[in-house]
C-alpha cells in the first residue's frame, strides 16, 4: 500500500551548502587509491546508442573484465549496461566472470508506451539473461500527480523481474524540484525498487550531487523505517575520478560503510573508468600517461 504521509520537504539552498561542505574533503594518498578501486568496482559500464553493434558490446565486455591488465590487483567493473537486444551478446562475452548484465527496459529512455509493451520489453531482457533491469518511470504521469500509477507500474515490472534486481530511473532532469525527487524516491522504494537511479543519460542535466544527496537521504529514512536497504545509482555526467570520489564521500558520510560496495552503489558511466585508470596509472608511476595509453573500448 502506497503511503505518502510524512515525506519531509527539501530545502535546496541547504542541500547545496551540504554538497559544498562535502566537496571540501580532500581525498589523497591511500584513501584516494582505496576510493578509486572502489569506484571502479561500482561502475556499470554503459553503451546505450542506436548504433550499438554486437562487436562494440563484446569489446566493452572485455574491457569490463580487463580494465587495465598492466595494473595489478584491479577489480572488474560491476556490470555492463546495454539495450535488451544486446543482452545475449554481453552475457556470452562475460561468461562466468561474475560481472552482471544490466539491461534498460520499459520503453527506455522516454517510457512513453503502454504497460503491455513495457512488460514485453522487460521480459525480452530477462529471457535473454539480464541480471539487472534498469526501468524508466512514466514522468508524465508522475508530474500530473498520478503517484499511484507510477507506484503500480513499478510494482508490476518488479514482479516481472523475478530474481533480477530492479533499478528504477527517475530521469531527475525532467522532475524539476528536489521535493519531487524525494517524493518519487519514496514511491519507487515502496513499490519494491532494489536501486533508485537518477537518469537515463539522454537528458541534461543527468546525475547531480544535490539530486543524489536527496535520494540518499530518502534511502536512509526508508532503511530506518523498514530495515530494508535500497541501492543508489547516479548515472550520466560523472566522468572524472574527482567527481567519483566526491560522490563516494557523500555516500560514506550519508549512508555509511554498509553502502560502500557495488551491491548497493553504482555509477552509470561510460568514460569514468578510463579516467580512474589514468589516475591509478599516475599513482603507480608518479606521472600522468597520455590518454593514448588507455584503451577506448
Amino acid at each position: 500500500m502506497l503511503d505518502l504521509s510524512n515525506i519531509p520537504v527539501i530545502d535546496q539552498v541547504g542541500v547545496e551548502e551540504r554538497i559544498a561542505r562535502l566537496n571540501s574533503r580532500s581525498i589523497k594518498k591511500e584513501s584516494k587509491l582505496q576510493g578509486l578501486h572502489l569506484a571502479l568496482s561500482m561502475i556499470d559500464l554503459t553503451t546505450l546508442e542506436g548504433k550499438d553493434t554486437a562487436g562494440k558490446v563484446r569489446q566493452m565486455c572485455y574491457k569490463a573484465m580487463h580494465p587495465a591488465d598492466d595494473i595489478p590487483g584491479l577489480p572488474t567493473v560491476a556490470a555492463v549496461c546495454v539495450y535488451p537486444n544486446h543482452v545475449k551478446t554481453a552475457k556470452t562475452a562475460l561468461g562466468n566472470s561474475g560481472i552482471n548484465v544490466a539491461s534498460v527496459a520499459t520503453a527506455f529512455p522516454s517510457g512513453n508506451s503502454s504497460l503491455k509493451v513495457k512488460l514485453a520489453d522487460t521480459k525480452l531482457a530477462i529471457d535473454n539473461g539480464a541480471d539487472e533491469i534498469d526501468m524508466v518511470i512514466s514522468r508524465g504521469e508522475f508530474l500530473s500527480g498520478n503517484s499511484k500509477f507510477v507506484y503500480d507500474e513499478i510494482a508490476t515490472i518488479k514482479e516481472a523481474c523475478g530474481n533480477a534486481r530492479l533499478k528504477v530511473i527517475f530521469e531527475t532532469g525532467e522532475l524539476s524540484t528536489l521535493d519531487n525527487i524525494r517524493l518519487v524516491s519514496e514511491i519507487a522504494m515502496q513499490a519494491g525498487a532494489d536501486f533508485i537511479k537518477t537518469s537515463t543519460g539522454k537528458i541534461q542535466p543527468a546525475a547531480t550531487m544535490p539530486v543524489t544527496l536527496v535520494m540518499l537521504h530518502a534511502i536512509k529514512d526508508y532503511h530506518e523505517k523498514t530495515g530494508k536497504m535500497v541501492g543508489m545509482k547516479p548515472a550520466g555526467g560523472i566522468s572524472t575520478s574527482k567527481q567519483a570520489l566526491q560522490y563516494l564521500v557523500m555516500l560514506y558520510e550519508t549512508l555509511g560503510g554498509a553502502w560502500m560496495t557495488n551491491e548497493w552503489f553504482r555509477f552509470g558511466a561510460s568514460s569514468l573508468a578510463n579516467d580512474i585508470l589514468l589516475q591509478l596509472h599516475k599513482e603507480q608511476s608518479g606521472v600522468y600517461y597520455s590518454g593514448d595509453y588507455i584503451s577506448k573500448d
Binding site: D69, L248, G257, T261
Partner: peptide, 20 residues
C-alpha cells in the same frame, strides 16, 4: 582477469588520509 569484488561482510571503512 581482474578479480571481482564480492559483497563485503565487514562494512567498508574509509579513513581519509590527512591533508595537511
Amino acid at each position: 582477469m581482474a578479480k571481482k569484488i564480492k559483497e563485503q561482510v565487514q562494512p567498508f571503512t574509509w579513513s581519509y588520509a590527512p591533508a595537511l
